[in-house]
């Protein structure tokens, strides 16, 4: 179980808004996160990953305390090892597709499988600036998967994919999540694109 109870001041719209979230999400399943723009969905994912720190609250994952603002516990992102898919992809311009994956893992069989899932074998020697938006987004997803994380945190991970590619890619990911018993929290503005995943849906900021 992922237990979250946090409060954080948001640095948007003049900084007056607060993100308050309290909830539980089951492990080994997908939880879809919806909510209006500026509600703090991305910030929530970053807090879980250890990339942002709330003023108050706790984050407990599978009975391990990742964050407890009161007692000063705050595990680093390196110790939390979440698979994070950034909304802006955060690809490394100096690395090819293959180098992105090799930076994350030395398991070449796993790398081959990820390239197959993302249909990117033919582009493995390309750098991000030579990839289409959809290819960049798929690379961001498989790079996060490369470390075989316990928890995937995905911020608008399918927004740049065309309908057919999205259907194939989400179906392949859904099978992979089931196979590896992964937990995933997926933020999306378009709930329909997550139809391939079964799981709970939560809304924040309303």
């Amino acid at each position: 179980m992922i237990e979250i109870d946090i409060e954080k001041k948001l640095n948007i719209y003049g900084g007056g808004q607060m993100l308050k979230f309290s909830g539980q999400m089951p492990m080994h399943s997908v939880t879809k996160i919806a909510g209006p723009s500026g509600a703090g969905k991305s910030t929530l994912l970053k807090i879980i990953a250890g990339l942002a720190t709330p003023e108050k609250g706790r984050v407990v994952v599978d009975d391990k305390v990742w964050l407890d603002a009161e007692s000063g516990i705050n595990l680093s992102p390196q110790k939390r090892l979440t698979g994070f898919v950034f909304q802006d992809y955060a690809l490394f311009p100096n690395m090819t597709v293959l180098q992105h994956l090799q930076y994350a893992t030395h398991d070449s069989a796993w790398i081959d499988r990820l390239l197959t899932i993302a249909e990117m074998q033919a582009f493995s020697s390309q750098k991000p600036q030579h990839l289409s938006g959809g290819q960049q987004q798929r690379l961001a997803v498989i790079r996060a998967l490369a470390i075989k994380p316990q928890l995937m945190l995905m911020d608008e991970p399918f927004s740049a994919l065309d309908a057919k590619t999205k259907a194939r890619f989400t179906a392949a990911l859904s099978s992979l999540f089931d196979e590896l018993k992964m937990t995933a929290l997926i933020v999306s503005h378009n709930p329909q694109e997550l139809d391939a995943f079964t799981g709970d849906e939560i809304t924040i900021g309303e």
């Binding site: 970053k46 990339l51 390196q78 490394f92 994350a104």
Partner: peptide, 15 residues
């Protein structure tokens, strides 16, 4: 550089 570049590396376990 976008802060997310370093953040992405940290989430991959890199120092």
């Amino acid at each position: 550089l976008p802060p997310s570049l370093a953040q992405a590396s940290y989430t991959l376990g890199k120092s």
